[in-house]
């Protein structure tokens, strides 16, 4: 099976012969099905259930105030956005 029919199968649409891109299958009728293929499932999004502070210094300041330790996740690119 080549990649384009794989998408067609999921979308339940027919494809133009020789199509190279899924763009032709993006229509008002299929838009929400494309959306559902792209957005993370609840299990994939579970990491957002941790109440992450969004900057290091916010957490350090809070830790100083509440006498609690800090756990930092830091990446090239902000972990809560594009990393």
């Amino acid at each position: 099976m080549n990649p384009i029919p794989a998408i067609a199968l999921l979308l339940g649409t027919a494809l133009a012969a020789g199509a190279q891109s899924p763009a032709g299958d993006l229509t008002p009728a299929t838009r929400t099905r494309f959306r559902d293929l792209i957005l993370p499932a609840p299990a994939e999004d579970a990491w957002r259930g941790i109440p992450w502070r969004t900057t290091y210094w916010e957490a350090v300041t809070e830790g100083q105030r509440t006498e609690r330790p800090i756990f930092l996740w830091t990446m090239n690119g902000h972990p809560l956005a594009c990393t």
Partner: peptide, 16 residues
């Protein structure tokens, strides 16, 4: 891990 992380103040930031 979510439970362990909850013992700390969980923080994120851009490292560079």
């Amino acid at each position: 891990i979510q439970k362990l992380a909850g013992k700390f103040i969980p923080a994120t930031d851009e490292v560079t």
